[in-house]
């Protein structure tokens, strides 16, 4: 019998879901509301120098990579099941497209994190 790839995608979905549940709200608040408005955080908190230092730090790279990739795999896996709720008949090709999109985004994150030095 062919091995199922379900555990892999379910683990990525679960890992992303857990990360989003624990840190998602505060991340969105900081990067999307607090810093842009200077409300509860300094507007300079996400200055070029600060974010560059984060992306050039080993632990910072891992954190950025995990957030981007796990959020992408979590979101795309769930959206793949979500479209079915709107009456769209899902096919293996669509599954490959949704997971492939997350994989491409992850690859882009990896390349960018290496290129940033």
């Amino acid at each position: 019998m062919k091995r199922s790839n379900k555990p892999i995608f379910w683990s990525l979905f679960g890992g992303g879901g857990m990360l989003a549940a624990l840190f998602g709200p505060i991340l969105v608040f900081i990067t999307g509301i607090a810093v842009p408005l200077g409300l509860g955080a300094s507007k300079d908190a996400m200055s070029y120098q600060n974010v560059l230092a984060l992306a050039q730090n080993g632990l910072g790279k891992i954190a950025l990579f995990l957030v981007i990739t796990l959020f992408l795999f979590h979101g795309c896996h769930r959206m793949y099941h979500f479209v079915h709720d709107f009456g769209v008949h899902v096919t293996p090709a669509m599954k490959a497209a949704f997971h492939g999109f997350a994989a491409l985004g992850s690859l882009a994150a990896l390349v960018l994190l290496i290129r940033v030095g």
Binding site: G16, A20, G24, L27, V28, T31, G32, L64, V67, I68, F71, L72, H74, G75, C76, R78, M79, G105, A108, A109, L112
Partner: peptide, 9 residues
């Protein structure tokens, strides 16, 4: 969650 990840990317 997906769009937010893309914004960060």
């Amino acid at each position: 969650v997906t769009v937010y990840a893309l914004i960060l990317l």
